[in-house]
Design a protein around this nucleic acid. Sequence first.
DNA 1: ATGAAAGCGCTAACAG
DNA 2: CTGTTAGCGCTTTCAT
Lengths: 333, 333
Amino acid sequence: MSVTIKDVARMAGVSISTVSRVINNSKPVSNDIRERVMDVIKTTSYVPNPVARSLVLKKSNFIGVIVPDISNYKIGEILNGIEEIGKMYDYDILLCNSYGELEEEIKYINLLINKQVAGILFVSWNLKKEAVDIITASSIPSVYVAKNAREFDVFSVGIDHEKAGYDVGRYLLTKENEDIMFISPDHTSQTINSFIIDGVKRAFSESGRVFEEEHIKYIKADTISAYEFMTDYIKSGNKLPDAVFATNDDMAAGVINALCDSNIEVPEKVSVVGYDNTKISSIIRPALTTVEQPLYDIGAISIRILIKKVEGFEMKEKNITLPHNIIERQSSI
Amino acid sequence: MSVTIKDVARMAGVSISTVSRVINNSKPVSNDIRERVMDVIKTTSYVPNPVARSLVLKKSNFIGVIVPDISNYKIGEILNGIEEIGKMYDYDILLCNSYGELEEEIKYINLLINKQVAGILFVSWNLKKEAVDIITASSIPSVYVAKNAREFDVFSVGIDHEKAGYDVGRYLLTKENEDIMFISPDHTSQTINSFIIDGVKRAFSESGRVFEEEHIKYIKADTISAYEFMTDYIKSGNKLPDAVFATNDDMAAGVINALCDSNIEVPEKVSVVGYDNTKISSIIRPALTTVEQPLYDIGAISIRILIKKVEGFEMKEKNITLPHNIIERQSSI
DNA sequence: ATGAAAGCGCTAACAG
DNA sequence: CTGTTAGCGCTTTCAT
């Protein structure tokens, strides 16, 4: 069947250790022998068996990646970065979809540890201590991508959400919006967006305004829920806010549609701002003002750091903060 | 460190072969011994090392999945199905992102073969003979998801695109649209959508209409390209079609936006129909009439078939056709 | 029914 | 610089 190190050794007339040495460049080998071996490798198109290698090295070149939702656009972009850079460094991606549930996350963490992955890249909507503890205990190198990753003593990559919230707050306040509504995922996952809201609060207090907690509306984080919430809100005859800031684009899209379907002009009557700059934001009309995150880079940098750690480099910076940026489109005035 | 089969054997006072037998249920073991071993396994929470197992069995429980674009919503949905069912059967997903390029596809196929994956699930925009041949030659079980998979003698899962095109054709024709424009990805990936157009043609001929090749516009398959194309088309003063059928939702969204931004009413002046029923289709206004594919199921079923093949079952049906369905929304009349 | 032993393909001492 | 040898953790004959 497939050619092994033994075959190569025999055909090159050397011992298997010598072959091992040339393929790993682990010890000096005389030039003629090296060439002889290389020739055989080329002609037989021999590739070392990674399974056998993992067994003896007790380490694979798999990187376990746990994500909360593959079909989510943001996750997809991050994964693109992870996959591309991972493959560039010759690591393979073992994909696990946790659906954002702690139980699944823990199951996969244990599975990955058992598989002897070289490293774990953990992407989560909301990082939990239980998960972090298990990974830490395994002493497998790891990097985290999560809004709340900085709450733990771990390596992480992401933007500064507090600052982003602050920026949106300032942006909205500067535009003289008196009454601002905030739409955030409901309390089951509430913490994860508190940083954004924290930033908004800072912007408020900085400009001497009081932030009313009841202006935050907690809903399920999807377009339909936002649409229904906003439609109900309008129908109930509540006073309309001057602006609404939804902490993801999907919800913002629901808000825009609810407003437009009720003939309330966006942005003339109500400004809408989203978060993430996903595809939807440029397609929806009016196009959505939103906060851009360098998703691909988040993935790419996080895996690069992980690989560095796997390969034994000492990293000085534990938390990498990437730049964010407000993309101003037509939905805000 | 971690407990091995040896440890378990020693602690249970049996040989490692016996332990192996109980964990694999491969040979009869007396009840008392079996229980003794089970106890040790439980207390030590021993898990067999999958790497060692792969080495001797020359087969892993990895399933290599090659996809053309992780961040694409359709692919994400398919992957959701693949991942969930895969994990259910205890297989792990080795993810490879080919960016739709043959060269990458081939690279990954070889990589997966070398990794001794148990099976290969190949998702491609446009399946090529070269790729299929390599997989076939490896004799690793495989299943394909691609519009043109049926052109090859392989196992595949998907909807009947010709029929879907036919259905859209009939739908549009029944609505008395005289002049219909078709928007399809440009020729680099042209073949993959020809089935849809073939179906449309059948609908045309069936109702005694001639299909004008020049009504097909080949453009880059994204929203912006479609937007620009349509805007130019309008600006150039061409006669507007009664309807446009774009072979994916992204392009359809671009068309709708171009039309609306030029104050051409959709669907009153021009109907627009998309393909795929992605998230965008329900968010855009007017909401997009489109063809729904059971993406999650395509993923789920394809991996289930693959696993069956991996485990040695004989599958009778090579090509599984799942139902599609026209979702009628506001963009067509 | 159970154990001893060989070996999967590879790396890494250990000798020379 | 090169070869011999001992495993890595597991499955699987082959004896018993």
